[in-house]
Design a protein around this nucleic acid. Structure first.
Length: 295
DNA sequence: CACTTGACCTGTCCGC
DNA sequence: TGCGGACAGGTCAAGT
């Protein structure tokens, strides 16, 4: 699932690959995946890329921006040449071979064509993701962005994080970490990793957790995401970067998708349960369940 | 307002 | 082998 490190990895790739290129045409294969008028992008040149939380932005000249969200299965994959017999980058046996092949494929929702024949494909198996073409000065007003909490890897997010999470004392800390209005960019993988780091049971109510522990959880999320950035993100099923490559972070995860395997701190088996509508991984020994407060 | 649940989708996996 | 259903999880709408 593309979370902050995955979206940032895609952004860095796109920054190298498409900045300076002029869009000739956008072909939309799945109308619900694109908001706005695709024809309005033609003739505009990419001036830069940005990211806020899990939201990707590709700025164009003329005051336009392509804003996108990959949700769970979105991919932004750049190909230098038009599809053809030689377009496949990966040889037989390459680890990417089974993940992504010639484009467009069945999951391709739109194609952004550039001067010179290169193409940026937006693939999204489950059609939850979207791209929108809107005036740059209206990007910040998108509700998701307008309400979004602090960036966990920029400056000191703790004071703002603390202010926001303390408004939600009755919710579970797992749900709070997934709430983009409390802190930006954390999804299911890094929420579980953060709580393992801080030794907090995911079902614990925010109101029952000290500031010191909450700060540790935020720090744990940041630590996991920084490592993931170095490793090109997490590839669970679909995620690839702008050049179609997998990320390697899950090989180093402490709890995510490790149910039944030994905790790296205490060797007890990792548990998996369902919380806040999500699969939730934790060490039942290191992360003690909350005590009932009354009765 | 705070909080929870279901909807949105489709590919994969599991049990029968 | 085929089939039904659970599951995967980011965000929003609708519910309590």
């Amino acid at each position: 699932m593309p979370e902050l490190p995955e979206v940032e990895t895609v952004r860095r790739g796109l920054d190298q690959l498409v900045v300076g290129r002029e869009i000739t045409k956008i072909d939309v294969f799945e109308p619900k995946s694109f908001l706005g008028q695709p024809a309005e992008a033609s003739g505009h040149r990419v001036t830069g890329t940005r990211r806020r939380g899990k939201v990707l932005m590709i700025d164009l000249d003329g005051g336009l921006t392509l804003v996108g969200h990959l949700k769970m299965t979105g991919q932004m994959v750049y190909r230098e040449t038009a599809p053809g017999p030689d377009a496949t980058r990966w040889g037989a046996g390459h680890p990417n071979d089974s993940l992504i092949g010639e484009l467009p494929d069945a999951s391709s929702r739109l194609a952004i064509h550039f001067e010179g024949g290169s193409t940026l494909y937006f693939n999204d198996q489950r059609k939850f993701g979207w791209l929108a073409l809107i005036p740059t000065d209206q990007v910040a007003a998108i509700p998701l962005l307008a309400k979004m909490g602090p960036e966990p890897l920029e400056g000191d997010p703790w004071p703002e994080f603390r202010r926001r999470i303390r408004r939600h004392q009755a919710t579970s800390v797992k749900a709070a970490l997934l709430n983009q209005e409390i802190v930006a960019g954390i999804g299911n993988i890094y929420a579980d990793e953060a709580l393992w780091h801080a030794r907090i049971h995911p079902a614990t109510r925010v109101g029952d957790i000290s500031d010191r522990k909450l700060k540790s959880a935020l720090g744990g999320a940041a630590q996991a995401m920084r490592l993931s950035l170095e490793l090109g993100g997490s590839t669970d099923r679909n995620y690839v970067d702008a050049e179609g490559r997998r990320g390697a972070y899950l090989d180093f995860a402490n709890v995510f998708r490790r149910e039944g395997q030994p905790c790296k701190r205490c060797q007890r088996p990792i548990s998996k349960t369902r919380l806040a509508g999500r699969g939730t991984h934790f060490c039942p020994a290191c992360q003690r369940p909350p005590r009932p407060r009354t009765v």
